[in-house]
Write a protein that binds this DNA or RNA. Structure first.
Lengths: 163, 163
DNA sequence: GAGTGTAATGTTACATAGTAACATGTCAAC
DNA sequence: GTTGACATGTTACTATGTAACATTACACTC
């Protein structure tokens, strides 16, 4: 299953795996997964949702880290640059990457109700995009592939109206 | 050619066509292309680039319209909702739609150097995205498909370094 | 052609998101 | 034990986006 985000699963396993992989990726690049960075990743991993930088910052502050925006942005940028997290422009938020190190291109399904984010493989999407770009003689460096909608749970809730 | 943005062309024609089509679309929906809205569209159409809301606002203010952010955001939102313009999240900007009324799904090629934006057809991209979403039982409502990179001109300029 | 309802425009005031610049701290290597 | 590089922290600010409400324009009715 490519996107467990919207289905029940052993989430502790998600976290452990992702953290372990993160350690590897970072070590392999001769970088350091410092306390702030690690904690930031953990915060993102706690749920399959997107979090705004300021929400992350609040959590970091509670844990004794700095209280100012750059603290969060620096850690988040580090994670994004190293493929350990993704930035979701559509909602100005960040989400942990579930399979880092695979140098994948991901696309995102964003639930507008619960803010959940599922990551789906985007190799084909990327290829199609490249083809379109080639026609315009445009060279792609990065892509943002994001869809907004409703996850199964929230769709049921909306349709049923059984609050 | 699907994306004239990065190639020489009769730009006056672009503008005239888009404005005429805008009139039609709006009329067909029983809405009004008021002065602010029309002027906002013209401003966007002046170039095949993306403009921030505050840049648009500045231009509107010069022309005697309101000076406050909601003035620009309302006009821009109106245009986006009616398919006359697109919002490019990646760079927090807006761009005129070159073929409104076709109820198309567009993807965007954004030049990071000159801020130019080309619109490419995204029917296939959308279909691929839908397929991925279906696997996760996710229902898509809107998509953002954006690529950042270099347009032909800017790539030449960068490569050559012949300033 | 005065009155009324609705949509559009305008304003103030604020909320949220992101960054530049610089001071301080940490730590490995020499 | 000093140096250099990187990481963390701060202040202060810029940029982007909205909520709430006052005012105006306009179509429609009587």
């Amino acid at each position: 299953m490519s996107s467990p985000a919207f289905h029940p699963h052993d989430h502790g396993h998600c976290i452990a795996t992702a953290l372990a992989q993160a350690e590897q990726v970072v070590a392999a690049r001769g970088l350091r997964l410092t306390p702030v960075r690690r904690r930031t990743l953990e915060i993102l991993l706690e749920r399959h949702g997107a979090m705004g930088a300021y929400d992350v910052l609040e959590r970091l502050a509670e844990d004794g880290f700095g209280h100012q925006p750059p603290v969060a942005y620096r850690a988040l940028d580090f994670l994004v640059e190293n493929g350990l997290a993704h930035r979701i422009r559509r909602i100005n938020a960040f989400t942990a990457c579930l399979h880092p190190g695979e140098d994948h291109h991901a696309a995102f399904l964003i639930c507008r109700a619960c803010n959940g984010v599922a990551e789906i493989p985007a190799a084909r999407l990327r290829a199609v995009m490249e083809a379109g770009a080639a026609e315009a003689d445009f060279s792609i460096e990065r892509v943002n592939l994001e869809a907004l909608g409703l996850c199964p749970e929230c769709r049921m809730a909306e349709a049923g109206g059984k609050a």
